[in-house]
Nucleic acid binder design. Structure first.
Lengths: 396, 396
DNA sequence: CGTCTTATGTCGACGGTCAAGCAAAAGCTC
DNA sequence: GAGCTTTTGCTTGACCGTCGACATAAGACG
């Protein structure tokens, strides 16, 4: 229960947080920005150089006399292992400290095989991916994992996941970190996708909602730049909000009229199948839309309207400045988004919509692994964590 | 653009934040809690004693040898001026640093008289209230004001308030602090009510929603213990969420089917008036309910159901651990709450509702002034602010 | 009243930080 | 290549915050 007051709380962390934007800077600039003496600054800069978290850049700024060497964040100092585990699919990546993917892999990997088989495969694959991009296990500063169900983020354990048999309360972080020797962070897959998309717009946006429309419907919430997980980590479960005039539609959750049962990818596939199309999963619906199938396009647009109805309420309540729509169904082009926009702009308050952006995911199916990497990077590169690492390296 | 790295960042602030809970502690306990040497601790404790923010308590703990003097937060060190300005009504209070009301006053004060008349009255009344509780203007550490409309919290200016003629972009903080000589914080009235209610439960609750049902309907949102204001400061505007099967009801906002037009106090009064009752404002509805008028009771309970419909969606989306219902109509007893509970518990997900509390306001019509005081106290007693004050007092 | 125990104040030592100054380095201009 | 300009690294002395140790204070107990 001690409060860290420092002793040698070196302060290298805040220096790094300034350099995290990637812009190269001279010592003089950094001294002015931090308010430290040049001698002190050099001391702390050296600490970061020793950690290889910062590196001198090639181009020197010249202003008449001796050119000033510039220093910039070294995104290659460490690597992050990121995993986005879906219900049937898995995507893995090795990224640098700026979320750039260095090596990646996707595979069919049903989550219901259980934690040990899936995570064993995960560890093996990570080793292979590390080999692909020429890095070693020693370079790994952390592992981020997204799971398709509710996760207690503090402990990293899934809690009562409806579609992950065998995973309930499995200690994922302990299991993985024992085998990979680095800190492990776990969260819900929609949350990490939100984090990934937020990363790209973090300089302009403070409040954001990421809506994933796959088989089901869910969303991740960013408030004041931080993920809002809710009291039970169940925030963002908009898939089971009841939509009007569909009280007869039965949802897998046992209730009726849920958004997911009306506008989710699974529901669309089922409805089109009933109409004679050969659609079993949400990706089949996307195929059909891309092929120009009119009933499929109409269904997707109408789903957009239903989702828009719910989001219109969410906009009034939460007042975000950006809504990002992702997931399988979102990749079927503008049809879905058109429906969403149509309803939100007509139903939400002008004050809340005048500066509201409604966009499709920039990262596409990479949002998950990017977000997993972001989660790790934010943890490992937080000022206090950097201070501690620097202290440990110099202190012994 | 300097980053405060200290010099003499005394650290007295974190010490005070430990003592803020009100529990008396000995020097030894505090040294252990902070991790500082006893000598260092004494130094910082002295700084807080000089500021009178901490005071020795009478009872000394005895354990064989010399008894240890205990120290506790001195809630009487300063006073806060708090104002909750409604559309027609105003409530003012002088509170101590633990939000205890020392003197208060309510008055009819229509906000549409404009900023200068209202604020002039405010300043006069504050002086009188200070006299009543035997404190001087020098004791005031800050002023908190709640206004019935959207406020840009950073600047304290109302922005496009629909029902506050003459207030648009009026510089409330500058005007008041020039006359009262202390920092002024301004926010929306619903936000400060949320803050006030949160204060009472802050040790158990991190995510909360405060719903105010007066003439209109609005809510304040607490995420991770902090007020979520949204991108335009417009978050919590649930009064204009569309509720199903009321598409014919016209709202004062120009749209149709808004929750406020269906279940707000103004709407209830109008509906009962059309049925022959003598109700013009929401308080009249409450009177009627208290008198046992059956149509009024039915109307209020049904309003609770309509509000519950919206809140059920909000619960799925936001996953709070507590919903507090306040405002005029909430004071009509359990009828409203029964309607709200009925719908939320039947429509929201079990995971989100199993530990969800739905309660009426503990503070009642004092929630506003309490919240205004909380806003000021959190600002003035924040560790950095305390450090700065201590530094200023000792440095010159 | 003396002794014992624990709390508290004081003082010197230590270490981190700063400002200043100087010499060396690295490029440019002439 | 000499001279100029500016950055950079290094050193020194001073200052301040923090710590540990010692002396003193305050009450209890016999």
């Amino acid at each position: 229960m001690l409060i860290d007051t420092g002793g040698s709380a070196t302060g290298a962390g805040v220096l790094l947080s300034i350099l995290r934007d990637g812009r190269p800077r001279t010592r003089a600039e950094l001294a002015q920005l931090t308010g430290w003496a040049r001698s002190t600054l050099s001391l702390r800069l050296d600490a970061l150089l020793n950690q290889r978290l910062v590196a001198p850049t090639d181009d020197a700024i010249h202003s008449g006399g001796r050119p000033a060497t510039t220093f910039a964040f070294n995104r290659s100092a460490r690597v992050v292992l990121a995993a986005d585990l879906g219900v049937t699919h898995a995507r893995l990546a090795v990224t640098d400290l700026a979320t750039t993917v260095l090596a990646e892999r996707t595979a069919e990997m049903p989550i219901d095989r259980g934690p040990v088989p899936v995570l064993t495969w995960l560890v093996e694959s990570f080793h292979e991916l590390l080999g692909e991009c020429g890095r070693g296990i020693a370079d790994v500063c952390g592992i981020g994992v997204g799971l398709p169900g509710p996760v207690e983020h503090d402990t990293g354990k899934p809690v009562n996941p409806p579609i992950m048999p065998g995973w309930d309360r499995f200690a994922v972080p302990e299991w993985l970190s024992a085998r990979l020797g680095a800190p492990v962070l776990v969260d819900n897959d929609v949350n990490i996708m939100a984090l990934g998309e937020y990363w790209a717009v973090r300089s302009q946006v403070r409040h954001m909602i990421f809506v994933k429309i796959g088989t089901g419907v869910g969303c991740g919430i960013i408030s004041e730049g931080r993920l809002h997980r809710g009291a039970q980590g169940a925030a963002g479960d908009i898939g089971h909000i009841r939509v009007p005039s569909f009280e007869d539609v039965v949802c897998r959750c046992g209730n009726t009229g849920c958004l997911e049962a009306v506008a989710g990818g699974g529901a669309l596939a089922a409805r089109l199948r009933a109409a004679g199309e050969d659609t079993s999963v949400s990706r089949d619906v996307v195929e059909l839309v891309r092929a120009g199938n009119v009933p499929a396009i109409q269904a997707v647009r109408q789903a957009g309207r239903e989702i828009g109805t719910v989001l219109a309420s969410v906009v009034n309540f939460f007042n975000p400045s950006l809504i990002v729509v992702g997931g399988d169904i979102a990749e079927s082009g503008e049809h879905l988004l058109a429906g969403v926009r149509e309803v939100i702009y007509s139903r939400s308050l002008p004050l809340a919509t005048q500066h509201l952006g409604i966009l499709t995911s920039e990262l596409g199916d990479r949002a998950g692994v990017t977000g997993a990497a972001v989660m790790v990077i934010e943890h490992v590169l937080a000022p206090e964590a950097v201070d501690q690492a620097v202290m440990a390296a110099s202190g012994g």
